[in-house]
């Protein structure tokens, strides 16, 4: 599969939220404002790419040589948590403007299943290092797209009349379903 096909497949066909159900919590929680959605998306893209690279190296040079494949989950989450913490400190000191825009999202990302999920999925698909990182990057772009679209709809939803019991998360999920249905149409794109 070439890179372009992979990019399209990861963003549209197998959209990480709408087709694979990863990262639903921020999809519901951080989709009230388009600016916040973009910030969250950028932070996830950044961290997911880095985390996938690190965990790939971990798997290859620590877990596999010792035959400790079963510790994957434990090691990956440890690596991701430390990485997020480190990136946060690094950005705060070295790149304050970037920290300003991404800083508040970083602590939320440790417990984002999209990041851990992508790292594990890359392993299960047995990708090489470069492909893994590219896969994580494009899937995270798909995450950003879904979040941004949702935020756009929600901004309009604020001013429409929704039955009392359907307000908030409830109508949000129904809309996510309709979006997911739309994205279903992309399934035929990559054969």
């Amino acid at each position: 599969m070439n890179y372009f096909e992979m990019l399209i497949a990861a963003i549209f066909v197998n959209n990480i939220i709408l087709a694979q159900y990863l990262g639903c919590c921020p999809f519901v929680g951080c989709s009230k404002d388009r600016g916040v959605a973009i910030g969250m998306g950028a932070a996830v893209t950044f961290v997911a790419s880095m985390a996938t690279a690190f965990t790939w190296l971990m798997q290859k040079y620590v877990l596999n040589p010792f035959g400790l494949g079963y510790l994957q989950t434990l090691v990956f989450i440890l690596v991701i948590a430390s990485l997020v913490q480190f990136v946060e400190m690094f950005l705060k000191k070295m790149v304050p403007p970037l920290y300003k825009s991404l800083g508040i999202f970083l602590p939320l990302i440790t417990t984002n299943c999209a990041v851990l999920g992508l790292a594990i999925l890359a392993q299960r698909n047995e990708f090489g290092l470069g492909v893994s990182v590219f896969y994580a990057f494009s899937a995270a772009l798909g995450f950003t797209l879904a979040l941004f679209l949702m935020a756009g709809i929600r901004e309009r939803l604020v001013i429409s009349r929704v039955p009392k019991s359907m307000q908030g998360t409830s109508i949000g999920l129904v809309m996510a379903g309709l979006m997911s249905l739309t994205f279903f149409a992309f399934q035929g794109m990559i054969g």
Binding site: Q20, M166, Q167, T169, S170, L173, V174, G177, S180, F184
Partner: peptide, 19 residues
Amino acid sequence: VEAPGAFVCLGLILGAMNY
């Protein structure tokens, strides 16, 4: 059983619980 059904179903159940 597909992804859209999951979202819509959960959304409707939430609405019913609220109701």
